[in-house]
Amino acid sequence: MSETRILTLVGSLRADSINRRLAEAAAQTAPEGVDIAIYEGLAQIPFYNEDLDVPGVVPAQAQDLRDAVAAADAVLLVTPEYNGTVPAVLKNAIDWASRPYGTGAIKDKPVAVVSASMSPRAGVWAHGDTVKAVGVAGGAVVESASAQFATIGERFGQVHPAEDAEALTQLGATVHELIAAANGTFVSA
């Protein structure tokens, strides 16, 4: 069996963001034979503009993202909640991965969403908006693979999520469900 590749996109650009740390912790839960890579470079991708999306002249950063999504067996999105919704950088990545319409790199790709927020609501609005955007873009959202983390400033302010047994359990379950979906062994409840 070949290695399962999961591409992780983090909606916070801050180097020391808790969302990035959640993505790192998720990567640590990967079993043997599974590679979870955190995509670098979302900040350099221009905002989606159909005038820029011309075959042969797509901006290199956007094409790199498309190629990375296409090469992955599944995608893990880790999103904070900015002003009650998904951060622009993550929405932009979804937009680029969705094109060309109907055949974009994210089409039919299993996708899991992890949301995290400083509030007690656990990024529920960002989670919902991300799931909606991925679904409209053609991705196959694996709802059972979702995870939501609340009050992350308090919970992970001094401790990396990789040092939190409950967080690792939740992230490990997310990764497990996403792997099952990518390998065609996912069983819907």
Rank of each mutant, 00 (worst) to 15 (best):
P55E: 08
H176K: 14
L65A: 06
I18H: 01
A133H: 00
R155W: 09
R121Y: 15
W125Y: 10
H127F: 15
I179F: 01
D53M: 02
W125P: 00
Q61I: 06
D95H: 11
T130P: 01
P161N: 12
L178K: 04
G123M: 08
D51Q: 14
V124Y: 04
T130Y: 03
M118Q: 03
V78A: 07
A133N: 02
V131N: 00
T8Y: 02
G138N: 14
L65Q: 05
P46Q: 08
A30Y: 04
A60T: 15
L77F: 12
P31I: 07
V124W: 03
S98K: 05
V187H: 06
N49C: 10
L171M: 05
M1S: 15
N49F: 08
I152T: 13
A37Y: 00
L22F: 07
A97F: 07
N49H: 09
W96H: 11
G11E: 00
L13M: 13
T85Q: 03
V142T: 04
L90K: 03
I152Y: 04
S117F: 11
P161T: 11
A116D: 06
I106P: 00
I6R: 03
V131C: 11
L42T: 04
G123H: 03
D164T: 08
V89R: 09
A25M: 12
D16K: 15
V86I: 14
L52A: 05
A180N: 04
A182T: 05
T29K: 08
A181L: 09
A60P: 04
A180P: 00
G157C: 12
A23E: 07
E154P: 00
A181P: 06
F149K: 06
M118W: 02
A147T: 08
P110Y: 10
V124G: 04
V69A: 04
G128I: 05
K107P: 00
Y101S: 14
S144Q: 13
Q61P: 08
I6N: 03
D129L: 10
F149E: 06
N183D: 13
L171Q: 01
V124L: 09
A182D: 06
G33L: 13
L52T: 05
E3L: 13
L42G: 02
V136L: 12
T85K: 01
